[in-house]
Computed example of a mutant assay.
Amino acid sequence: MTSTSVEAPPTPVTPEPQKPRSPRSVTAGTIVKYALAIFFLLVVLMPAYVLIVTSFKSGSEIGVTGQWNLPKEWTFSSWAKAWDALQPAFLRTFQLAIPVALISSLIGAANGFVLSRWRFPGADVVFTLILFGMFIPYQAVMIPLREIVTTVGIPPGIPTLVFVHCIYGIPICTLIFRNYYATTVPEELIEAGRVDGAGLLRTFWSIILPISIPGFVVTIIWQFTSAWNDYLFAIFLSNTRNGPITIALNALAGAQSPDYAASMAGALITSLPTLLVYILLGRWFIGGLMAGSVKS
């Protein structure tokens, strides 16, 4: 009689429990992260604090020793003085920045569409030559540019600056829109327009422009900010009587006996439009900038 051996069932393998992360290391890393964030935030906000506080001080309170102190008596006289000095240039700068942002964005959209979807011999060479304009330092072309503007006969001031900023804004706007159209707009959409009999201009106007809002947000913010903050073109191609607000702000702050409170208030007034543009359109800026970076 043979005995049958019964094998014991295999012992289940219990996975080793993972060691919990040390709460001390997590807390230390979080503390360091927030400490660095607060430190850099303070570094950024310290000049802004001095700028705002000084603009509300009277002349007797302004000094190196008391620059961190709050005003003993808050006054808006410096803001009124700065606005009186900057108001004409403030309005002229809107006449500069808005046309520049719209015109250069529209030209860049047309260039980007043609260079991305309507291929022709030498398209890459044309695109390279357009981009070459981004790498030419402005300082290197100031004197020849002034001679060209004088020869063409464009009156100095805002018309000249609109013309120059539109020309120098074409490369970056073309680059942004070319990448956007090449990676985001499907080829089937353009083919459908061709089947329906739409030509180049009709396709661009009726099909492409309505879906180009993300690209326009990016280029409008870029060009508006560049034209509003420009000083180099303005100092060469305009003056305090017909130039933008950066020229007027320099005149306000560069007097023989400068009024520091009025200068600080003027700097804040000058920065308000670009700040509002980023507040209103900033939520779409990154999305529009990244829209042409990855092909969907």
Rank of each mutant, 00 (worst) to 15 (best):
R119G: 13
R119S: 15
F120E: 00
F120I: 02
P121M: 09
G122M: 11
G122K: 13
A123Y: 13
A123R: 15
A123C: 12
V125S: 14
V126K: 12
F127Y: 15
F127W: 11
T128N: 13
L129K: 12
I130Q: 10
L131E: 06
F132N: 12
F132R: 07
G133Y: 09
G133H: 11
I136H: 11
I136C: 11
P137R: 08
Y138T: 14
Y138H: 11
Q139A: 14
A140M: 12
V141F: 11
M142D: 04
I143D: 01
P144T: 08
L145H: 00
R146C: 00
R146V: 06
E147F: 07
T150N: 14
T150Y: 11
T151D: 13
T151N: 13
G153E: 08
I154W: 05
P155C: 04
G157A: 04
I158Q: 01
T160W: 03
T160N: 02
L161M: 05
V162K: 01
V162H: 02
V162P: 08
F163Y: 09
F163G: 01
F163W: 08
H165W: 08
C166A: 06
Y168E: 00
G169F: 08
G169L: 07
I170D: 00
P171V: 01
I172F: 14
I172R: 08
I172H: 07
T174W: 09
T174L: 09
T174S: 12
T174Q: 08
L175A: 09
L175N: 06
I176V: 13
